[in-house]
Each structure stands twice: as C-alpha cells, then as structure tokens.
Amino acid sequence: MDKFGEILHRFGGVNLLPVALAAIAFVLIGAPSSWVTLTVAGLAMGMMVFLMASGLSLVFGLMDVLNFGHSAFISFGAFIAASILAALGGWLDGGVILASAALALALVGAITFGLAAGLFFETVIIRPVYRDHLRQILITMGALIVSEQVILAVWGGTPFTVPRPAFLEGAWIIGDVSIEIYRLFAFALGAVVFLGLMVLLNRTRIGLLIRAGVENREMVEALGFKINRLFIGVFMLGSALAALGGAMWAGYETLITPALGAR
C-alpha cells in the first residue's frame, strides 16, 4: 500500500484527480467535441472557485481560523472590479490595449482592496479571537453581515451589470468545439496563480515557513520567526486571492448582487 502511495505521489498525487475525472467524463459523454467544451468550461469554473477558496484554505490551514467572513472579500472584489470596469467603460471598446489596461486596473483594484481589507480583518477582528473557534464563527459571521450591508449601502440592492472587455467576449469555434474566451482567460489566470502559489510554497523560504507553521506554529516561533507577521501576510494573501476570484466571477456572471460571496 505504501509503495502504491509512493508511486501515486511521484506521478502527481491528488493532482491526478482532475485528470481521472476528465477521463471518466470522456467515457460518459461520448462526443469528443462536447467533452472538450464541457471540460474547458468546468476547468475555468474550477479555477475561479480555486482562486476564491485557496485563501480560505491557507488561512484555515496555517492559522486555524474559521473565517466565515471570507466571502465578504469575494463580494467586495467583485463590486470593486465591476465599478472600475464600469467607470472605464469607454476603454473597454477602445481597442485591446485600453481594454486590457481597464481589466488590469479592475483586477489590481480588487487585489489591493483584498490586501487592505485582509490587514484590517486580521488585526481588528480575528486577532482577539485566535484559538477560539466559537467566537471566530460568531464574529466573522457578523463581519460578513456587516459587509453585505455596506455593499448594499454603497452599490444598492439592484443587480449590478458588469461590463466585459470586448476581447473577452464570444467564443472560439474549432470544428465542433466551442470554447468561451472568458472561461479560457479565467483558466489561464487561475493556472498562473496556482503556479505562483506552488512556487511560493515549495521554492521559497516564506513558503517553507508557511508549511512549517501549518504543522507546528510553536516550533516555528522557537526557531526565531515571528509567526504573527507570517499570519498577517498569509491572511492578506488569502483575502487578495478571494477578491481576485470575486472579480473574475463578476466578469463571468456579468450581473452581480451583494449576496454573491455568500452564495
């Protein structure tokens, strides 16, 4: 069994799961063109969910914090990106360069908000309730409710239309296969973030500290590292990833409401 586990690990371990699922789906779907279309769509959706959930996983894994308010970062990221895109509406139809600049600004805006909100959230809301799961649930649920009300107050309850850059509209048709361009973009961005996180966690000293901190926070401190600073950094990173995921999800749905994150 150990040998089987070692072989499985060598060939990618848990990363093989999507490949196996895709293979099973290929058999079940039958038609290759439908399979490609659905697989790309599923991967894109999965990548957006990955962006939103990876922060939650990092924060729970390293800090043992149950952050029910994580979805607030997703909602804010979506609304901030959507507002920037709406404000730069003229750029979206002004050629690829201007539209790309608008999109980049929207994503950077969402990420910046996520970093700042993460810093605020960790220092003001989470820090007093470390090691107390019940209070974490209560206070982060409260923060989520307050966040939704803030979104309602700022953006109103009417569904907000998210404009998309023209170059991300439509689909590529290759034979019988139809691939939506926005989904491809979402997949590519998710893949870049995934690779970035892999490099950060597996090839840098910070990543080594995060992995060690997940296992034994006390020992990391005893080795001379201030784990609180690491916690703040990880929380900010997690919040920024959630906001980025929210921004991407907003572009995917094109009509968003304050309950987007909670949903």
């Binding site: 992995r211 034994n216 401190e221 005893a222």
Partner: peptide
Amino acid sequence: ATADIARLGIAYVPENMGIFGGLTVEE
C-alpha cells in the same frame, strides 16, 4: 517573545521533538 529569545542564541528541543513531518530533513 519566543522568537526574540531564540534569536538571542537559545535553541529548544521539545519533548515531542517538534519536527515538521511534511518537510524533508533538509528543509
């Protein structure tokens, strides 16, 4: 703080060894 004490030149080998199982020996 523990980290500051460690930086002064005190190392700690706890009863449970405190090794990071998911990391390699080198790491």
